[in-house]
């Protein structure tokens, strides 16, 4: 049910994008919407991050995943249990670039029947890593459309990506990887009862949206061959704030563009904000040095305590009888 709703919604969006552009004035879908989407994305994300950053971190609560820094002769696991900012940076880099914690799931195991077996959750790590990295490369490749002259690193990325030189234009590895990874993540969500049970419509929506975007993009590149020059003309004109819509761009491109706009606008609202969010996660971005360096709670307030005086007043006689020292005789 959740799956179906999400699928239908994304399909409708694609259709709206494709045919909206032919029915309605083109500037709505080609100009106004992209600008609006980028604005919503940028402002929405900024607001979201500022909201998080505006909430104080009252306590230093890192999750420690290795040996602490203590005595000089005990080897500290600096990246698993950092004790200063530099080490935290290292831990965060591992987390953000390589999804360290997800990789922890792997467990190689020697089993009688089948020899060496890897925990299946290694697949989740691979799937997630492949999806995110491929997406990053795809985004870099798209810079080609927004820049003139095209920066060297973009050209290089594209060359490297298409080194297999299959087809014309050559098939980029990341396109394939991205689609496969997304399909795997979708498959996993559907096939694994555990994950299916916890999934919300939003989870499928995000996957279908990305699949729609990647799928339509690949389709345009390899099958329907959209007028790339025209698209670049449009993209550059948008970047230079002198929008003009060339004729002859296929509806599928507008469908693609529309889904991208939806993604941009949805990004700051929904679960996709986990990207920026991970940078702020207190269990990962703090050093485990609270005993060495005091952490201050900005909203600390005095609480009602039971003072020693009150305590002694209640027990004085008995303390004296038991030979315990007291402050007031």
């Amino acid at each position: 049910m959740n799956v179906l709703i999400s699928l239908v919604v994304v399909a409708c969006l694609l259709i709206v994008g494709m045919f909206g552009a032919t029915i309605a004035p083109q500037w709505i879908f080609a100009v106004a919407l992209p600008y609006a989407a980028v604005a919503v994305f940028a402002i929405g994300l900024a607001v979201r991050i500022m909201k998080w950053a505006g909430v104080p971190v009252p306590f230093r609560i890192p999750t420690t995943c290795g040996q602490q820094r203590s005595l000089p002769w005990i080897r500290q696991q600096k990246l698993e249990n950092p004790s200063n900012k530099l080490q935290v940076l290292g831990r965060m880099a591992l987390e953000i670039l390589f999804f360290r914690s997800l990789a922890r799931n792997t467990r190689t195991e020697l089993r009688k029947e089948r020899g060496l077996v890897y925990g299946t959750d290694l697949f989740l790590w691979i799937g997630a890593l492949a999806m995110h990295w491929a997406l990053a490369v795809v985004l870099i490749r798209h810079l080609r459309l927004f820049t003139d002259p095209v920066p060297a690193f973009v050209t290089f990325t594209e060359k490297a990506d298409g080194f297999l030189e299959i087809g014309l234009p050559p098939v980029n590895i990341t396109t394939v990887v991205l689609l496969c990874a997304l399909l795997y993540l979708l498959y996993r969500r559907l096939a694994n009862a555990r994950v299916r049970y916890i999934s919300l419509p939003e989870d499928y929506f995000a996957l279908f949206l990305l699949l729609g975007i990647a799928g339509s993009g690949a389709w345009m590149r390899h099958i329907s061959h959209t007028d790339v020059a025209g698209v670049k003309e449009l993209a550059l004109s948008l970047v230079h704030f002198s929008p003009m819509v060339p004729t002859g761009i296929s509806p599928l491109f507008f469908g693609h563009l529309f889904l991208v706009c939806v993604l941009l606008m949805y990004f700051p609202l929904g679960k996709l904000v986990h990207g920026p969010g991970v940078f702020l996660s207190p269990t990962r971005n703090m050093a485990n040095n609270n005993r060495a360096v005091r952490h201050v709670n900005p909203w600390d307030y005095p609480v009602k305590v039971h003072t020693y005086e009150e305590y002694e007043d209640e027990f004085r006689e008995k303390m004296i009888a038991a030979g315990l020292p007291v402050d007031k005789e």
Binding site: K51, W52, V55, V57, N105, I198, K271, V273, H274, G277
Partner: peptide, 19 residues
């Protein structure tokens, strides 16, 4: 008052790694 709380309410993607 607690960034941990706010953040943890927002960023879960229900990947199931913890399950």
């Amino acid at each position: 008052r607690f960034r941990s709380f706010k953040l943890f309410m927002d960023i879960c993607v229900r990947c199931g790694a913890c399950a």
